[in-house]
């Protein structure tokens, strides 16, 4: 009797299953009718920066997976929007079961893995993730074409430019104080970087750029102290949840704290500085608001 009952339940489960499948199929037809032929409908992203732009441009229903970084509030500007999506670890295995029709990766994703995905017949697009605001415009527009949302991409760039213009008008007549970016291990940030863009758009002079640093460089504690910046932007790169390290203890050095007491200090959260785009404008607005 128990067996018969179990059979009945299984049967019912099967029937409910059919109904769900039928409903899903209907929904899929519906979505297909809305999306044009050029629009990929099952997009997966393998890079934190492409994750965030994808979430800004494309409706959630057409995203099948983003990286596990995208949902972390400390590293992702779009953490809230990413919540609930299937997550991958930037690896092929994570996205294959989701049957994506477009896989987006950054230039630093594993090339061998991407080649494998292409051999398996998937459409893989590698975008060059921008390092600064100048590169960001072309990148966003190109990205919009790839995901079939060119109008949304144009609107996003327009919005960024308008906000930047407003900031430029605001800081035009302010003095330009000397600022230094300092990260764990004494890393500083010079020309051709997003943090340099953030500083200069917010009306600061970047100490490292003026001393000839291009990209990321190293500033010893002594050099930083001797240069006496008026502003110190601490790029903490990870929040307290990441725990301790020698690199982070470095920022607690009493001599650095002596400088911290003299200078204006801004902590730059990684969610604003790791990728380039609207989050960059938000970082600039945050700095300007502090002036």
């Amino acid at each position: 009797m128990i067996a018969a009952f179990a059979d009945g339940v299984a049967d019912m489960g099967l029937r409910v299953g059919y109904i769900v499948v039928a409903l899903l199929a209907l929904a899929a037809v519906d979505a297909a009718a809305v999306a044009t032929a050029a629009q990929p409908r099952r997009i997966a992203s393998l890079n934190l920066c492409t994750d965030q732009l994808l979430l800004m441009l494309v409706p959630r229903s057409r995203i099948v997976s983003v990286t596990d970084w995208a949902v972390r509030p400390e590293s992702s500007y779009m953490a809230k929007a990413a919540r609930g999506l299937p997550l991958n670890r930037g690896l092929a295995e994570g996205v294959l079961p989701l049957d994506p029709d477009l896989i987006i990766a950054g230039q630093f994703n594993d090339a061998a893995m991407l080649a494998l995905l292409r051999r398996l017949g998937y459409r893989v697009e590698v975008v060059s993730v921008p390092r600064n605001l100048n590169e960001a415009r072309a990148y966003i527009l190109h990205f919009g074409e790839l995901v079939g949302e060119p109008e949304a991409a144009r609107a996003l760039v327009r919005d960024m430019d308008e906000r930047l213009a407003r900031i430029a008008r605001r800081v035009r007549d302010l003095p330009a104080p000397l600022a230094a970016v300092y990260a764990p291990n004494g890393v500083t940030v010079g020309r051709d970087t997003v943090l340099d863009d953030i500083l200069t758009h917010a009306g600061f002079r970047n100490l490292a750029a003026e001393q000839g640093v291009v990209g990321y460089g190293q500033f010893s504690l002594e050099q930083l102290l001797a240069a006496q910046p008026q502003w110190l932007v601490l790029d903490v790169t990870a929040d307290d949840a990441a725990g301790d390290s020698i690199a982070h203890r470095y920022l607690e050095h009493p001599a650095l704290q002596a400088l911290v007491r003299r200078a204006q200090v801004v902590v730059m959260p990684p969610r604003l500085s790791e990728c380039v785009g609207p989050m960059t404008v938000a970082a600039i607005e945050m700095l300007v608001a502090r002036r």
Binding site: P184, T237, A238, A242, G243, S245, A247, Y250, E252, P254
Partner: peptide, 22 residues
């Protein structure tokens, strides 16, 4: 370790340094 710097700091633990000790 959850810290992104941890792995690179193996050099410090295996070879030693007193740079920036306070």
């Amino acid at each position: 370790s959850p810290n992104p710097f941890a792995m690179s700091e193996i050099v410090y633990w295996l070879l030693g340094s007193i740079a920036n000790r306070s």
